[in-house]
Design a protein around this nucleic acid. Structure first.
Lengths: 292, 292
DNA sequence: CGTCCTATTGACAATCCTCAAGGTGCGTGG
DNA sequence: CCACGCACCTTGAGGATTGTCAATAGGACG
């Protein structure tokens, strides 16, 4: 069982929806994954604890349009996406839905519920999906706990950095960035980086980027007209990744602080107070804290 | 020692910069805080472990304009703001600075370094400050570790939610939201909610909100002209908090998904698969995981 | 085959960025 | 103490971007 269909998936064609890959063992009429399976899916090395308790985590199939979880439900499990494509959204203070992310294979769902004990976002399947259920009771003090916490912290950091970066860009740059990220994420799963299918609506993209669907549509049309990409409905083909990459951070949008100089009496603070070769301490704390 | 100067501070006038409140014990020529001090500052109950090891955490003074940490420095400590006002910023892919947050009393600095083992943001003091140094070696497996992790997860969740919410608003709403949050944060520390001093420049505000400094300036002027606030340099007085609060989410900016209906075959999934009174499990996992 | 959702495109208006020109406050050095 | 420089703030005018409203067309699905 060791590594799951990871290397297998790495050869797939891009347009075949990654529906229900059939790894995991069949037992009691359902599919289950081992600790090793989940770790591989999360791309985090398996802890070497010899307590070979062989924990098994049940799979759950989600049909397109169905919800993995709803806002307000009490937090009792985390989920790891085994395959398929989803959308995470929350309600802002007005009651409108705002799209937070588009999770896919290897992403963790439900981490927003840890803190409040209640999910603050909902996750809906944009294609038929399969997720692995990690119940709290299973995670608590298990070998998986640190692994999952590591994955969560990685995701939150990346997503937040991405959200911040988006704030200062204008529509074309946002769009280019979104497409590049989609491309990279597809590539990371072994699909084509040049050709992929957007599973979400223009409106979803707009909500995620802070644009209207018309602006998204126009932006995509403009990129296509410029020959940077080719569009057929939701099928995207990247023709010039150079140009697309360059578009991510075009002009200024003078929204940033520019100076980058003058540090009033910065003397030797940074080197004076905490020198002491610390990488090891950092690593140690990391072990215990948010990483694995 | 118990609760620090918390209740004392709660009576201060708003314009007096909260510089170097003098709690903490003096030892070896420096100020130190106990576990109880730090927990109170973080507004998190102190763990009841009877290992009364009496850990002491050293204070560090930061003069206005000095840096608490720089981008790229290796991660070896977290900091809790004892008093003063600061600014956190990172460099985007272009090399421009982007302001992430304006930390104040009780906030944690440096959590962005946990994951990479290296700080990805820098923190500069906007006023004379005092921070409490939590070295990794002290935190590791200590009673404080869970407390700090809880505080960090709380901060990250709030900051991310705030960042996401900002994305869809237009300038006036962003500005109103910013002012309301500043007001609330000041109030939470015992200062006046109606009258406070902005320690950051218009440019910093703009960078934080994704606007230019001119737009910020115009927005503030407009609010003042409307009688909602009164402005004198960086001194802000809120005259009509009703109006200001209402401005936070004005028109639509049709950026959100609106439908809010039609769940294709949602049948009984959410209630069918994971009912089981889970709050207790959630609480347990919470204990072990990110909370205290 | 009709309906609904989605996407595209156009025209127009509002917002916001850009460039530019003062003005104010503060620290530094003469 | 005053002059000067420098950052910060304000305000204006013009233009680019983007939101809004509206009309149309294609596709999915029952």
């Amino acid at each position: 069982m060791a590594l799951p269909s990871f290397s297998t998936l790495a050869q797939h064609r891009s347009l075949v929806p990654a529906t229900s890959a059939q790894s995991g063992r069949l037992e009691r009429g359902a599919l289950w994954s081992t600790l090793a399976d989940v770790c591989a899916l999360l791309r985090i090395p398996m802890p070497v604890r010899d307590e070979a308790v062989e924990l098994l985590f049940q799979h759950r199939r989600i049909k397109q349009g169905q919800y993995v979880m709803r806002i307000g439900e009490s937090f009792n499990a985390l989920y790891v996406v085994k395959c398929g494509f989803l959308k995470t959204q929350m309600l802002d203070s007005e009651g409108n839905e705002r799209v937070l992310a588009f999770p896919m294979q290897g992403d963790v769902l439900g981490s927003d519920g840890i803190y409040q004990g209640r999910y603050s976002a909902e996750v809906v399947a944009l294609s038929d999906c399969e997720v692995i259920v990690l119940r709290c009771s299973q995670l608590k003090n298990s070998a998986l706990e640190q692994v999952v916490l590591h994955a969560i912290s990685r995701e939150i950091m990346q997503e937040h950095a991405n959200t911040v970066a988006l704030t200062a860009l204008h529509s074309d740059a946002k769009l280019a960035r979104f497409l590049v990220m989609q491309s990279q994420r597809h590539a990371a799963l072994g699909y084509s980086a040049k050709s992929f299918l957007l599973r979400m609506t223009r409106r979803d993209i707009g909500s995620h980027l802070g644009l209207t669907l018309e602006t998204v549509s126009r932006g995509i049309s403009a990129l296509a007209a410029a020959g940077t990409i080719s569009v057929d409905q939701r099928h995207i083909e990247i023709l010039d990744s150079e140009v697309l990459g360059a578009l991510q951070t075009p002009g200024n949008m003078r929204t940033a602080t520019k100076p980058r100089a003058k540090s009033t009496r910065t003397t030797t603070v940074s080197k004076g107070m905490l020198p002491h070769s610390a990488p090891m301490q950092a690593r140690l704390f990391q072990q215990t804290a948010l990483a694995a």
